[in-house]
Design a protein around this nucleic acid. Sequence first.
DNA 1: ACATTTTTTGACGTTTCGTCATATTATCGC
DNA 2: GCGATAATATGACGAAACGTCAAAAAATGT
Lengths: 244, 244
Amino acid sequence: MPTLSRKQRDMLEREELILSTAQTLLNQHGYNHLTMDRVAETVEYSKGTIYNHFASKEDLVCSLCCRLINNLIDVFERAYQYPGTTRERYSAIGIGYSLYNQLHPMDTQNIQTVKNNAVREKVSEDKLAEMESLEQKITKITRSIVQEAIDCGDLNKEHQDNVDTIVFGCWSMHYGALLLDQSDIPLQNLGFSPVVNMLWKNANIYLDGYQWLPLSTNTDSDKLFEKISSALFDGEIDLLKKAV
Amino acid sequence: MPTLSRKQRDMLEREELILSTAQTLLNQHGYNHLTMDRVAETVEYSKGTIYNHFASKEDLVCSLCCRLINNLIDVFERAYQYPGTTRERYSAIGIGYSLYNQLHPMDTQNIQTVKNNAVREKVSEDKLAEMESLEQKITKITRSIVQEAIDCGDLNKEHQDNVDTIVFGCWSMHYGALLLDQSDIPLQNLGFSPVVNMLWKNANIYLDGYQWLPLSTNTDSDKLFEKISSALFDGEIDLLKKAV
DNA sequence: ACATTTTTTGACGTTTCGTCATATTATCGC
DNA sequence: GCGATAATATGACGAAACGTCAAAAAATGT
């Protein structure tokens, strides 16, 4: 016996329909051309009904963002489960993030859009709280790998006070790199070679700096990238190859 | 004898008036409440005249962004001139960037806004080209310090192929960190301590990873932060203290 | 079968962008 | 100085999009 009435189930189903429709429109035409009228027309409900589900256009987009963060949480959890060293598992998170970003560039733009204050301003308190709690979930996964590294000696105990700093360091480096990659800035014109490779190299250098064992200088890091991505993200890699 | 006619000078003067007015309005009320009508009203010209100077609202905001990048170039050039080791000079850039960000948080939000594709879409080709050329100027400054480090032996010659990667690494780390700091994400709730400190620490670890001499492990890096910021950015520091 | 509550609808008011015909001002030859 | 012509400024206007709300439709209960 379901805990939700038929009505509530219908409601959820329609919410899902609206969300996936909005996602499609957003991916196809971008934020500017995503209009509530168009969403309403496409799902064949009136605008008023859409507004019964989402307080504003920004709220709708933020909801998409929450779905997206849930996808990322899946990726992060898979990386967490990887049967390797703590360093490999932490790296797996970065790889997963990079791959997800390449596979769903529009999702990353979407996040960027919602992080922007002009948009954020119009999102309801509830949605913001929902997103924050999802982000906390992600932080928790990454932090616990760092903690395990300290506990098992892969990372020196002296870094116990730096757990947050390490997590933040990797987060900001990845976030910044992939945002730059996504933001139409012609990085090649500025002289940069493909971003994911540089990011992988830099992330390794950074973790080497914290002396997180085993060091990338003692490892074939190109091979490790291959190994991790095929072990965890085979599906994603296939999709990527098809896209090219 | 001026190379510009009186008319052209008037034009430039008014453009400056529009820009500084728009900047004020933007800082006071945010992107959503910056309207072309309000700008026109405030500068006491008609909207049509504003549109003679800027092709769209986005173009206007992008122009503000260009002014802002010019400010950053000033900061970067001051750091470039710092009479210290290459490592110190490179660090000085990061410090200057952090300080500028703290002193002008709205400017950073502004950049973030313009980097967003939904906004970027509506900026004229010319303005985008202008911004790109300014960004190239910044890249050039940072890259040349890295190159000097290699030339003088502070950075091993084996990194000659990684100059871009190093520049990109620092850029993305700083960009990501300061964006996260600015984007209303409650970092404290997520467990993070103040951002600039973590960023300084992470940037040092990262550069240590590249074995850029002198290593931060052989230096009192807190003292170095003090030293550089008071030598180069005394004015900014004063303003910051006053703001608190 | 009818009354009442819930949900849906889309026309409407509002805001803001960007345009363009018209008005105003400046320039220039005489 | 003056009239003709070119350059510039103006703000009323049309269009697009958001979000609302009174009225219509559907669902529920008696």
